[in-house]
């Protein structure tokens, strides 16, 4: 287990934090700064909002960096997939293994969604072909975040550096 992992409870639910899974989408603190404030320690304040509101925002986390569970195990038995809504996130190296797959197999039913996060990255959701600066192509699917501040150390992806460098627009 990553020693940086944390859990936070308000007595009713527990929110689990896995920093390694975070793609710095900024969805949590953009939606509920009273609970998720990266400038504070601890950065999660479970008394900042109602349980319902916290669940709602945790469910919007594009990865499994933030997840939640009822403290009452009986209640967890009634939780369905629709209640948790965790979109499976994949990093580029998950796709590189499948490089032989035909590009034509990429399904393209809906337009690719690109969301410009205020003072944060581009959140991209859908399937597309990514051509990297060295000319290599990767079939991408799911959700990823691209640097918009110019300072990421894992270009072209976001690594959360926009907060340290104070990217404002």
């Amino acid at each position: 287990m990553d020693p940086r992992e944390r859990k936070y409870s308000n007595g009713e639910i527990t929110v689990y934090w896995k920093p390694r899974e975070c793609i710095h989408s900024s969805v949590c603190y953009m939606n509920l700064l009273e609970v998720f404030n990266p400038r504070k320690r601890p950065w999660v304040n479970m008394s900042g909002a109602s349980t319902r509101k916290i669940i709602d925002v945790v469910n919007q986390c594009p990865t499994e960096a933030l997840t939640w569970k009822w403290n009452d195990e009986e209640k967890n038995k009634t939780v369905t997939e629709a209640d948790t809504n965790h979109i499976k996130f994949k990093r580029p190296h998950d796709f590189e293994k499948k490089e032989e797959d035909s590009i034509l197999e990429v399904e393209q039913d809906e337009p690719l969604k690109i969301r410009v996060m205020k003072n944060g990255p581009y959140i991209v959701e859908g399937s597309y072909v990514l051509t990297r600066a060295d000319g290599s192509e990767i079939n991408m699917m799911g959700m990823s975040s691209f640097c918009r501040c110019g300072n990421s150390n894992s270009m072209p992806f976001c690594d959360g550096n926009h907060r340290k460098t104070g990217f404002k627009e």
């Binding site: 337009p111 072909v129 051509t131 600066a133």
Partner: peptide, 13 residues
């Protein structure tokens, strides 16, 4: 022409 339906993102160095 085989890939005109595919959305592409290209990173320029």
């Amino acid at each position: 022409n085989e890939r005109k339906d595919i959305t592409e993102i290209t990173v320029f160095s």
